[in-house]
Design a binder for these strands. Sequence first.
DNA 1: CTTTTTGCAAAGCGTTTGCATTGAA
DNA 2: TTCAATGCAAACGCTTTGCAAAAAG
Lengths: 148, 148
Amino acid sequence: MQGENDSDELSSFIEKCRRHNLKVTPQRIAVFKELTRSKDHPSAAAMFEIIRKQFPSISFDTVNRTLLTFAEIGVVDVVEGYGGPRRFDPETESHHHLRCTRCDRIIDFQCEDYDNLAIPEKFQRKFTVLGKRVVLNIICDKCKDVAR
Amino acid sequence: MQGENDSDELSSFIEKCRRHNLKVTPQRIAVFKELTRSKDHPSAAAMFEIIRKQFPSISFDTVNRTLLTFAEIGVVDVVEGYGGPRRFDPETESHHHLRCTRCDRIIDFQCEDYDNLAIPEKFQRKFTVLGKRVVLNIICDKCKDVAR
DNA sequence: CTTTTTGCAAAGCGTTTGCATTGAA
DNA sequence: TTCAATGCAAACGCTTTGCAAAAAG
């Protein structure tokens, strides 16, 4: 059953590539599969380190470019950062973020109240509103106890 | 009256420096004054370009380091970014952001409904919650009409 | 066969660091 | 007089670019 889901996801990914005239290469499949596996918000470098274990000949460059390409077609999102390397979010459905200001960990969460937040009408008139996100800045459980 | 506010702000800035054992240098004052003037979300480079007009001998380095120091003591915030240079927010009171996904412009706005959003109790228990922000992703008025 | 993608290397930004000099307190 | 801050230059990290070789369609 999990196998079914995986291959469904893979098929619709391949379909998406076709729609965008992107060739389906082993490298792109490897990056995609790692994205579906990830529950994190990895940088390109982090993705590269994981993927190269299974695919030693892949280059950092390809991983990075693939992630940027995927961001353009909506396979990943780029998440908000505060100075470090660009980070990607495999979860493209609407959700919200806890962000530890000490260690930069980002934790996804769902919240209906936040999803249902009204967007002020004046903004809808003036702009094209693509989406919204609530970010809660926190000091996470791991960092809270560490002396400074 | 505006002058009164300015010198009030300056005095409390100087006071803040003293509390944090920071020396009050002409460079720091120049950066601070430019911050109070700014309604934008400038990068260190942008701040440098503006400040050097009034203070030609200041170095990029000092501007950058000063902004980082100010971020530590709460004179500025670092705002969420999506890959470009780190950007600073002179407005440190609670507010929310419109963010154009095309040109990266950030527009501040106030919204009581958003300010009043409850923070899920489970997060308050597990973490130290420092603050929250709603980010609305938009295509801004200037970018909307530009052909792509 | 054509066109995109890959891997590599170099270049390009932006940020950070080390250090001698300067200046605030 | 002391110690932090500044300016400069070099180092560093991350991202982007150009290009020849390889692979997808």
